[in-house]
Design a protein around this nucleic acid. Structure first.
Length: 448
RNA sequence: GUGGGUGUAGCUCAGCUGGUAGAGCAUCGCGUUGUGGUCGCGAGGGUCGCGGGUUCAAGCCCCGUCACUCACCCCA
């Protein structure tokens, strides 16, 4: 990949790359549906008001306008492109609450737009694959667990290599920070979130400078954030750190995270890591928070994140709590394509290239192709009767595995371009090996 | 938005203290005249990002501008 894009941040793929992307999307769709998630799509456009409902503008939003908009047109609602799938989904849920059955589980794979400066793995237009479960009034914690399991399985199905879900719980973090006297928990979370990037000493310094922490408070916050275990043992470490009786909030967070880790370790062993530095910025998350690290691509940042939000959507007195995770499809795809880890075996869907002996054979060649097509075998007919060498080369350059010849007596032969073997055959019954029926998505580097 | 780097053939890049534009790969042709890939020979392909300036002369120097890219910020 790594081709120069005409516009930075707006990825356009070559056919072989797009086939790889489609394979990913098909895989995700299949995993989501087999777990009972319904497909959903929302419009590209939201009112600015909806997008900013959290109050804070921490996303670079693309506003849209009409070229011929009247000068004084202040009456129309200001519109903008969505920057994620969660906020539009929340809006959709409240609008259609009367038609939906709760708890409602859906998947949604769509493009989103952000005006941030593009960088490797950061785009201005990209696809996210979301799953969420939303309840009416209440939603069992069990849903947090299930969402994490489904996503872990989806990532496994993508065969992208080793990855870790890094999980934490905001109740745990907030409860702890409050208990040591740090009240601006949002600021603390934001600073602590940078631990991996800037290191403990700088985090401690920032805690003192911007979150009003004493040296001792900063030290204790750091100690919590540095807890990282692959099993449930994080809980003892937290309790040792707290000393006296944990607060109700902290205890709730401990219980939830313990349950999550325990189930994940049974159902998707080795994929989860309790990491108490994970905070997820200033978002709407209220409990479980998750980020995902792709091994070997740590610099990419998280490839799948999300968590529990208690009140993102509400309608009058009704509140719809939810939990969801989102895969950065474009980020993942571009990284694996440019590293060469994922590739398609050919750039076209074509399985068979039907050659032309003379220009007049075109009709007969289409008949052959149609017989193959009627059985689901993708076939393409040559446009002119060039030398066979050239016709074979045409197929070779596109990665088409088979070339078809028909002689002047109507006898058929099919050649496997890779092995060079050619044999007599019949268009009404010939079929390729199943693995050649569609382009194969090759994972070049095997899992360790 | 702030700061650094880079723009030359389809791709990756060379191009000296200014002197009329180069390589490898790719493409196309021929050898092999209707069964590709190897090999050999040959050919085509460039407003040197764009605009202005200095100079007898600018890919190279100066100014501006655009794009790309990296870091910060933020995040999938």
């Amino acid at each position: 990949m790594a081709r120069k894009a005409s516009l930075s941040g707006y990825l356009e793929l070559l056919p072989a790359e797009r086939l790889t992307e489609l394979h990913m999307l098909d895989t995700l769709r299949q995993v989501f549906e087999v777990h009972g998630f319904s497909p959903l799509e929302t419009r590209a456009v939201e009112t600015v008001e909806t997008l900013l409902q959290k109050g804070e503008i921490d996303q670079e939003i693309y506003a849209i306008s009409r070229i011929h908009e009247d000068e004084g047109a202040g009456r129309e609602a200001k519109l903008a492109l969505r920057f994620d799938n969660t906020v539009p989904f929340a809006r959709y849920v409240t609008e259609n609450a009367g038609h939906l059955a709760f708890p409602f589980r859906r998947y949604q794979i769509q493009k989103v737009w952000r005006g941030e400066r593009p960088q490797a793995g950061r785009f201005r237009e990209f696809s996210q694959a979301d799953i969420d479960i939303v309840g009416d009034g209440a939603l069992p914690f069990r849903c947090d667990v299930e969402i994490a399991i489904v996503m872990a399985r989806a990532l496994e199905a993508l065969r992208i290599g080793e990855f870790s879900l890094r999980v934490n719980n905001r109740k745990l973090s907030e409860g702890f920070y409050r208990s040591i006297g740090l009240t601006d928990t949002a600021a603390v979370l934001r600073i602590v979130d940078k631990l991996e990037k800037v290191g403990p000493s700088q985090v401690a310094e920032e805690l003192r400078r911007t979150a009003g922490a004493s040296a001792e408070q900063a030290q204790r916050a750091l100690e919590l954030a540095q807890i990282r275990t692959g099993d449930g043992s994080f809980a003892e470490k937290v309790r040792a750190l707290v000393g006296d009786e944990p607060s109700a909030l902290l205890q709730e967070g401990l219980d939830e995270l313990s349950e999550l880790m325990s189930v994940l370790n049974t159902r998707v062993p080795g994929r989860a890591m309790a990491d108490l530095s994970i905070a997820r910025g200033l978002d709407y998350y209220t409990g479980t928070v998750i980020e995902t690290l792709l091994h070997g691509h740590e610099d990419l940042g998280s490839i799948c994140s999300g968590g529990r939000y208690e009140s993102l959507a509400s309608k009058g007195k009704r509140v719809f709590p939810g939990v969801g995770l989102s895969i950065g499809v474009t980020r993942l795809l571009s990284a694996l394509l440019s590293s060469g880890e994922l590739a398609a075996s050919r750039s076209v869907p074509t399985v068979v290239y039907v050659t032309l002996r003379t220009s007049e054979d075109w009709g007969a060649a289409q008949d052959v192709a149609d017989q193959l097509r009627s059985r689901g075998i993708s076939a393409e007919v040559a446009l002119s009767a060039e030398k066979f060498g050239k016709q074979i080369k045409y197929a070779d350059r596109r990665g088409i595995p088979f070339v078809w010849f028909t002689d002047d007596l109507g006898r058929h032969e099919v050649k496997d371009i890779r092995s060079g073997t050619q044999e007599e055959t019949d268009p009404s019954s010939w079929a390729p090996p199943t693995e050649d029926l569609t382009p194969q998505i090759i994972r070049k580097t095997e899992d360790p």
